[in-house]
Computed example of a mutant assay.
Amino acid sequence: MKQMLLTFLIVIGFAVGAGAEQNGKDGVAPQIEAVIDQQMRAFQSDDYVAAFGYAADNIRRMFGTAENFGEMVKRGYPMVHRPAEVRFGAMRQDGGAVWQRVLVRDGAGAFFALDYLMVPTEAGWRIAAVTLVGAPESA
């Protein structure tokens, strides 16, 4: 039952995200989506230096090196390290924070919803945090 509910919520997220994406094309949505997409592409080619470059200063201080950061992602966020499919959902603002919902399907076919906290910097948008919002139950 929980898996059906999560699947339903993901489908709703795709529908809402499509509308948000269309409304946000003249704003920051394309820039934010590009940063997340480029970081995921860097992970897929094990280019942790490039992936680390999309992290905000708080993340860079926390992990210190691109290698430490890459290991954390491989172990803690395998669906981000090797996604089979990525879709962008709704973007929302909470105070000064911008959150981008990202829906990911891993290699085993499981869906995950993640919220990316995005911060503006002199170098452009950077990823300050990633929160796992939901995942299906394990079989």
Rank of each mutant, 00 (worst) to 15 (best):
N68W: 07
S138C: 05
G53T: 13
A90V: 13
N23V: 12
K74I: 15
V86C: 00
K2M: 15
E122H: 11
T7Q: 07
M4N: 06
D26Q: 10
A66F: 10
V73R: 01
A128H: 02
G24L: 05
G89C: 02
R61I: 14
K2F: 14
M72P: 00
G64I: 15
G96L: 10
P120R: 10
A90P: 05
A29N: 10
E122K: 08
R101M: 08
V80S: 06
W99D: 10
G89K: 01
M91V: 01
N23T: 06
A42F: 11
E67S: 08
M79T: 09
A55W: 09
L6C: 10
Q38R: 05
Q93N: 14
D47T: 08
A55L: 14
G95H: 04
A129I: 03
G24T: 03
I10G: 01
A56R: 08
R41M: 08
R75V: 12
P30Q: 07
P83R: 08
L9Q: 05
A50I: 03
L114N: 05
N58T: 07
A51I: 03
Q93S: 12
G124Y: 08
I36N: 01
R105L: 14
E122S: 13
M91Y: 01
F88R: 04
A29T: 13
D106E: 08
H81M: 04
K25D: 02
A113H: 04
V98W: 08
A108N: 02
Q38M: 03
F14D: 03
E71M: 10
Y77I: 06
V98I: 12
R82E: 11
T131C: 13
G13Q: 09
A84S: 11
A20H: 10
A123E: 09
H81T: 01
G134V: 02
D106A: 07
R105S: 15
A97T: 13
F8N: 04
D94N: 14
A110P: 00
V11K: 06
D115Q: 08
I10L: 07
Q93H: 12
L114Q: 03
V119W: 02
P78G: 10
N58P: 00
G24N: 08
R92S: 13
I36S: 00
I59V: 15
F69I: 11
M91A: 02
T65E: 06
F69V: 07
M4V: 06
R126Y: 13
A51N: 03
Q44D: 11
Y116A: 07
V11P: 00
R101C: 01
L103R: 05
A84R: 10
G19W: 02
G53F: 12
T131F: 09
V133R: 10
A97I: 10
A129V: 04
T65N: 04
P30F: 06
V16R: 01
D115E: 14
A34T: 12
G89P: 00
P136A: 11
T7C: 04
S45K: 14
P78C: 14
G24K: 00
F111R: 04
V98A: 12
F52S: 05
N23F: 11
S45A: 08
F52I: 09
A18E: 02
V86Q: 04
A108E: 07
F8L: 15
V130Q: 12
G13V: 04
D46W: 08
A135P: 00
L6I: 15
V28M: 12
R41I: 05
R87N: 13
Q22E: 12
G17V: 00
A84C: 01
Y48L: 15
R101F: 00
